[in-house]
Amino acid sequence: MATVSMSVNGKAVTGSIDPRTLLVQFLRDDLRLTGTHVGCDTSQCGACVVHVDGKAVKACTVLAVSLEGASVTTIEGLAVNGMLHPMQEAFREHHGLQCGFCTPGMIMSAVDIVNRRGNDLDEKVIREDLDGNICRCTGYHNIVKAVAAGAEAMGGQSMDQKEPPRQAAE
């Protein structure tokens, strides 16, 4: 067993885990944060996307033990004090989800796109940057609309609201 400490959604957590535990297993099985999903075995579908130190990663392809001291944000940590994140709101408003299974990964990826590329996103950029997220329900049409609208809405808020506040892991 190995011990790992990290910050998850602003809370310090410590786990005693088998080193082979993937981040997604740590989140789902140990922390019972089941919003992060597993949809494939080959690091392609993106249902498991979370943010590690502010960057979108596939939680199915990261060892939890390797994230000592890291700051992790999952879909459960995106809304702050019950206020939905603008990207969550945009997915609801634009019907960017149907069965909901890919949705947490989609939203986390979408926030990451905005973090990297800013608030004014054209359709081509959004479609290319959703390369690592597969949805079987929506045909992406409304996801693309939601991401564009969510990006714009994120521009309307102050920078410190873009990522939820984090607590140092130390």
């Binding site: 789902r28 944060l33 089941t34 919003g35 992060t36 999903h37 597993v38 999952t74 879909i75 459960e76 995106l78 809304a79 939905l84 969550q88 997915f91 609801r92 408003e93 019907h95 989800l97 909901g100 299974f101 949705t103 947490p104 939203i107």
Partner: peptide, 19 residues
């Protein structure tokens, strides 16, 4: 009408069989 079920899905609170 915007979907009533969406709140749980966009906040990671959907409850699927593996959950």
């Amino acid at each position: 009408v915007r979907r009533k079920e969406d709140h749980r899905f966009i906040t990671g609170q959907g409850r699927y069989t593996d959950d």
